[in-house]
Design a protein around this nucleic acid. Structure first.
Lengths: 215, 215
DNA sequence: ACCTGTCCTGTCATGCCGTCAGCTTACCGA
DNA sequence: TCGGTAAGCTGACGGCATGACAGGACAGGT
């Protein structure tokens, strides 16, 4: 049950319809990366897709609806971020490696989808539950995994008892997301990508294990 | 030279004009916290302020212009965040205290101005230089101070040479800002405010000094 | 009372929104 | 081959926000 694609008025979308729908999504996605969210107009998206506004409204209730769609696609893709943590070690040099790869993968994912992630972030911050859930879905894989890691280390007595695993993991993930979406900002600040990553990795390692990494 | 307040068409604003202007700003500010940025309309702001859209356009070129104005006010106010760090110690128990107070003050400031800060964040992330500069202005006080602290500790050999002070400070500040703007999010995640703060403080302390705090 | 410059609004052209009825196109079974 | 049916698309329209302007209301000074 993948849930058939339907138009707003209930018709099931066929071959051609789905193509148009997808084209609209692609164009919207492109517009989001070239102009402010606030200024994205349905008519522009439609024109760019070589169709009319009315067609847009056949497939999406409004711009927000379409954005949610794009974000949903991205979210499932983003579940792959779990790979960055599944079965990795946090001990010794391997721990440092894990930390670095997490940062690397995370920033890469964010850079690839920055336009849509900005909008999701805003929606979530504004308290919209749908966007909030979506943001969770994306971050949860990483977050849960980190939380578990901290819990384990805590059980072994390697991390202080008064650390709250969920809070720690959440903070680290939030940090990664924030830095990722302001990557350009750091450059103007005089900090280069290459210098940023190891510092982030260091913070992640410190946060998770409570110790400096062995390099 | 505070730079006289002027209308869009160049007249200097008098007593009454400034009052109206301020009222518009207040109403806009209020609207921003109750509805999505994308849906804030000039006409609503004007109505709420008991005036007409035309009046709004006499004082501001558009909604964005007014937002920048509000943000500017907040930015100067936010320079006070420096207090949280000026002349504080990062050694021993005092260091833990400093870290905690920084987190506390930062979150408080963010909570107080969350609506407008969201918009600034979005604008900055979208690459708008004006918003970007504003964000810098707000964060710079804290950021510079943290950078200096790390540099000092590094000079004394208490922090690893391969830590980049600016990158570290920037990451920590970004983390604080991100967590602050998703405070509600954490609650739904099952993390309570009271648990969040000490964990953030711990991360800040770890990042700045490289060591666990003495409590 | 009069003048001057500030302040506000009625009004208007423009352009986007969101909807509908109706036309075209593709598919399918007889 | 030929309708029939459902999918797919669009022109057109009322409604509303935008942004500009001219002109009227108002306050303060003389």
């Amino acid at each position: 049950m993948t849930g058939q694609v339907r138009t707003v008025d209930g018709r099931v979308a066929g071959r051609r319809g789905q193509a148009t729908r997808q084209k609209l999504l692609d164009c919207l996605s492109e517009m989001l990366s070239s102009s402010p969210y606030r200024d994205v107009k349905v008519i522009d998206v439609a024109r760019k897709a070589g169709t009319s506004p009315a067609t847009f409204y056949q497939y999406f209730p409004d711009v927000e609806g379409a954005v949610l769609e794009i974000a949903e696609q991205m979210a499932t893709e983003g579940a792959g971020l779990t790979q960055l943590l599944d079965g990795r070690s946090w001990v010794g040099k391997a721990g440092w490696q894990t930390s670095q790869e997490l940062v690397e993968g995370f920033l890469e994912f964010w850079r690839k989808n920055d336009a849509i992630l900005r909008v999701v972030d805003l929606g979530a911050a504004e308290g919209d539950k749908r966007f909030y859930k979506l943001r969770m879905k994306i971050l949860n894989s990483v977050n849960n995994s980190l939380t578990d890691t901290v819990k384990e280390l805590q059980a072994k007595g390697k991390v202080d008892k008064d650390v709250n695993p969920a809070a720690m993991a959440g903070s680290l993930v939030a940090m990664l997301a924030a830095v990722a979406s302001h990557q350009r900002g750091f450059q103007t600040w005089g900090v280069k990508q290459a210098e940023l990553k190891p510092n982030l990795a260091l913070l992640v390692h410190l946060g998770v294990t409570g110790k400096k990494p062995t390099k």
